[in-house]
Design a binder for these strands. Structure first.
Lengths: 239, 239
DNA sequence: CTATTGGTGCCAAAATTTGTCACCAAAAAT
DNA sequence: ATTTTTGGTGACAAATTTTGGCACCAATAG
C-alpha cells in the first residue's frame, strides 16, 4: 500500500464515517497509529481541513467543505503566472522558485490536452535572456500605465497595436505593429513585433512606448521569431 | 527529487517537446535511463497514454488527450507563486499581472480556511517597496547559490540562520539571526532578521550573504516587524 | 485522579526507490 | 547483412524513504 493510496483511503473513510479516531483509522487502513497521524499531517498540508478533538468522544472529522474545489485557471492565467516566475528567475535568484515551479507543474499537469496546446503556443512567444543591455538604472523609464491594458488584449488576441515610440536618441515615431513575442532582459521588457510597413521584426522597450491603442484592423498570424545566442524561448528552458 | 516530482517533470518535458528519447529525458530530469523507463511505466499505469517507437527517429510521445487531475497545491507552493508575482509587480509594471492575480485569487479561494490562515500568516512576512536604494547595477552582486537552499527551510521552519555578511564598506562579520521577513526593493532582496546578540532587527542584502547554514538551534517565534513609509506588507496591498 | 484521545520526537527496522550492468527486440541506416 | 539507434526487461546491491514502536506531552471528560 503506497502512501498516496492510504491517504486516499483515509479521506474516504473520514467522509463515510463522519468522525473517527486515529486508532480506528489505523485499523481500517492496516497501518500504525503513527503512520496515520503522519498521513493526516500530509493531508492537511495538501489543504484538507481535518478538525480534531481530544478526550472521550473526540476524534478526527473531515470538513466536508474542504474537499478541494479544483482551481480552474484559464490558459491566460496560467501563462501570466508563468511569466512572473520566469521573469524573476531571469532576474537572478528567486527565493522559493523551486516551490513555485512545483506548483506550476501541478497546475500545468491539471490542464486538459487542448488547453495545454494553447498554453504551449503562448509560451513560444515568451523569451528570456540573462544579459541586460542596461547598466544604469536611471535610464529605466516608467512604463506608461496605459500600455498594459492595450498590450495584453493585443497580444492575446493577435490584434495590431499602434503606439508612439521614443528611441535611444530621443526621436519619436508612430508605429503600427503586430505584437509577436515578449523578451525579458531584466529589468527590461521588450515587445518583439512584426512591422508590416518595414517588412521586418523590431524590438521595442516597453518603457519607451506611449499612447498605445489596439487597432480595429484584422487579426494577424503568429510568425516564427529568431534570436541569437543567449536568448531562448522560455518553453525550451529545463525546469 | 521524489518520484512524483520527477514524473511530473517527465510529463511536462514530453508535452513540451512532443517527442523525446528515453536518454534525453534521463538527462533532462537528472536520473538514470532505467529510472525514467520505470517512471514511464508508472505513468502508463496512472492512465497517461505514451506512444513509443523503436529505431532511428523513434522515441516517446505523450498522447495530449491524456488524463487531467485536480491540482492540489500546498500553502508553501501558493506562497512561492505569490512571491514571484509580488516581486515582479514591485519591480515595475508586469505584463499580465492582473491575470496572474486573478489566477492566484482562484487558487487562494480553493484553499480551505485553515490553510488560508496559514497563507495569510506567511504573507505577513513578505514586504515590498518601490524605492530601490540601488542606482548602479554594477553594485548588484550575485546571490550565493548556497543561500536559497539554506534560507528557504530556515524561513519556513523558523530556524536560526548563520552566515557571513559583507557590509557596504566591505567589512565581513559572522551573524546568527532569526529570519523574520523578506523585503523586496527591486532588484534587491533583503532578509529582515532579529539579531539576538544585538537585541534588534537588522536588514541583510541577500547578495552580500555568503556561507549560509541552518543552525540546529531551537526554532524561534515570529515577531512583529516595523517599517517606515513606503514599505508595506504584501498582505495589505489592494489586489 | 484516571482514562481517552490527538500530537510530536526519535530511532532502528522494513520497504521502496535507484543506479548499474547485461541483454533482448524492433526499426532504420549503411 | 551488419551496424546503430531506440525502447524494454531482469537482477542485485546501494541509497533513500517510509514505517512501526516507544516514550511522552496536552487537552478533555468523567
Amino acid at each position: 500500500m503506497t502512501p498516496r493510496l492510504r491517504q486516499d483511503a483515509i479521506v474516504r473513510t473520514l467522509r463515510r464515517t463522519g468522525t473517527s479516531t486515529v486508532d480506528a483509522l489505523a485499523a481500517e487502513v492496516g497501518a500504525s497509529r503513527r503512520t496515520v497521524l503522519r498521513d493526516i499531517c500530509a493531508l492537511r498540508d495538501e489543504g484538507f481541513v481535518i478538525h480534531s478533538e481530544t478526550g472521550r468522544g473526540g476524534g478526527l472529522q473531515l470538513d466536508p467543505q474542504s474537499v478541494q474545489r479544483a482551481a480552474r485557471l484559464s490558459v491566460a492565467e496560467v501563462f501570466a503566472l508563468l511569466i512572473s516566475v520566469a521573469a524573476m528567475r531571469a532576474a537572478g535568484g528567486l527565493p522559493f522558485s523551486g516551490l513555485a515551479d512545483a506548483g506550476l507543474a501541478k497546475i500545468e499537469r491539471s490542464l486538459p490536452g487542448d488547453k495545454l496546446r494553447d498554453l504551449r503556443r503562448m509560451l513560444d512567444c515568451l523569451y528570456v535572456g540573462t544579459l541586460s543591455p542596461l547598466q544604469d538604472l536611471s535610464d529605466l523609464g516608467a512604463m506608461d500605465p496605459a500600455l498594459l491594458p492595450a498590450f495584453e488584449p493585443a497580444f492575446l488576441e493577435c490584434r495590431p497595436l499602434r503606439f508612439r515610440y521614443r528611441d535611444a536618441k530621443g526621436n519619436e515615431t508612430l508605429r503600427e505593429v503586430e505584437p509577436q513575442a515578449m523578451l525579458i532582459l531584466p529589468p527590461l521588457w521588450y515587445l518583439v513585433s512584426w512591422d508590416p510597413a518595414r517588412g521586418d521584426f523590431r524590438h521595442f522597450r516597453m518603457d519607451r512606448i506611449s499612447a498605445p491603442e489596439v487597432t480595429d484592423g484584422p487579426t494577424f498570424r503568429r510568425r516564427r521569431v529568431r534570436f541569437e545566442d543567449d536568448v531562448c524561448p522560455y518553453a525550451d528552458l529545463p525546469r
